[in-house]
Simulated assay, not measured.
Amino acid sequence: MTKKNRAFLKWAGGKYSLIEQINQRLPGSKRLIEPFVGAGSVFLNSDFESYLLNDINPDLIEMYKIIKRKPLQFINDARHYFQPKYNNEAIYYQMRTEFNATSDVYQRALLFLYMNRHGYNGLCRYNQKGGFNVPFGRYKKPYFPEKELIFFAEKAKKATFVCKSYEKLFQYLRDDDVLYCDPPYVPLSDSANFTSYARTGFLRKDQEKLALLAENSKCCVLISNHDTALTRELYANAECDFINVARTISSKASSRKSVSEVFARFRAHSPN
């Protein structure tokens, strides 16, 4: 692959910088399944015949479905929210209130992209009542990702988008599938625990369940996570290798440190 393709969304924990390392570890197959697709960097930078892409966030998945179905209309309508007048704190909070109040799927999709590009640090966060609560980002001129949207829409012709629990995806497997799992990472410290991406958190029991499902899967599973004592325990029966990744782990830009991450590869399980 000569040219890397960026996702049209800003995304905490996105895998754009690790595409080469991930692709090196994914075996060849016809279909890639991602239970935690996020912004889709692996999808956008891999070459499979088809994709089954899942996320627990319904706003994200509904937006992807709309872009696949009517990309030109979505792009033209979304561009409206990237006029200078919408890069305003009061307008942003007005739009956020509108997003939280409406059940119109198309309008939510447009505002989801708007808030992703105008909100603080590209975060995607909801409160306990399910309300999007990311503050205004104060950017000079938010970027409208038109070319990235066009590329996504074209690649999406190969994809099926679903919104289910990660456990459900393991029920769809064929013997020759490959799974890439990028779950919410095990926190490096108690203060780093971030579980409000969707309306429910991703707890230790979920990390344990995912590892067990991967270990007993009938096809190959690759998991990314932080390198911690817990993940080393969970992935003890996998083929593990480790890389150091530059990561901002505090609010200060000067606190950019190298963090160890693990790739755990579970080979296909052959039932007795």
Rank of each mutant, 00 (worst) to 15 (best):
S165I: 00
F161K: 05
E148F: 06
K147D: 12
T160M: 12
I150E: 15
K141C: 06
V162P: 00
T160Q: 14
T160C: 06
S165W: 00
Y139N: 04
K155C: 04
C163T: 14
L169W: 02
K141R: 15
K147W: 01
K157C: 06
K158D: 09
E167S: 09
Y143T: 02
F151C: 01
K158V: 03
A153E: 07
F151A: 10
F152K: 03
K140Y: 11
T160G: 01
E146Y: 04
E167F: 08
E167K: 14
K140L: 13
V162G: 00
E167G: 00
E148A: 13
F151D: 00
C163V: 09
K140M: 05
E154G: 01
A156W: 05
I150R: 15
F161V: 06
K168G: 02
Y143E: 06
T160I: 13
S165Q: 08
P142Y: 01
E154N: 12
F161Y: 12
C163G: 07
F161R: 04
E148R: 10
L149D: 08
K157R: 14
K164F: 08
K164Q: 13
C163L: 02
I150A: 12
E154L: 10
F151G: 00
Y143K: 11
A156M: 04
E154Y: 07
K155F: 05
K141Y: 08
E148I: 03
K158G: 01
V162S: 11
F170P: 00
C163H: 10
F170H: 04
F151P: 00
F144P: 09
F152H: 06
K157L: 13
Y166L: 07
K140I: 10
A153H: 04
K158W: 03
A153F: 06
K168A: 14
T160E: 15
K168E: 15
A156Y: 08
P145S: 04
K157D: 13
T160L: 13
F161G: 08
C163Q: 12
K141D: 10
E167I: 07
E146F: 06
K141Q: 15
Y139H: 09
E146H: 07
K158Y: 10
L169H: 03
K141T: 11
F144Q: 05
C163P: 09
K164N: 13
S165N: 14
F170S: 01
L149E: 07
P145D: 07
K155T: 04
T160S: 12
T160K: 13
K140A: 14
E167Y: 09
K140S: 14
L169Q: 14
E167D: 12
P142E: 03
T160Y: 09
I150M: 12
F151S: 07
F170Q: 04
V162D: 05
F161T: 10
K147M: 10
E154T: 09
P145G: 03
K140T: 12
L149N: 11
P142A: 03
A156S: 15
Y139T: 08
K168M: 05
E146G: 02
K140G: 00
F144R: 11
P142S: 04
S165D: 15
S165A: 14
Y139R: 09
K158F: 09
Y166V: 04
P142M: 02
E146K: 15
F152M: 10
Y166F: 15
K158C: 09
Y166Q: 04
A159Q: 10
A159E: 12
A153W: 02
L149Q: 07
K158H: 14
E148M: 06
I150G: 02
E146N: 06
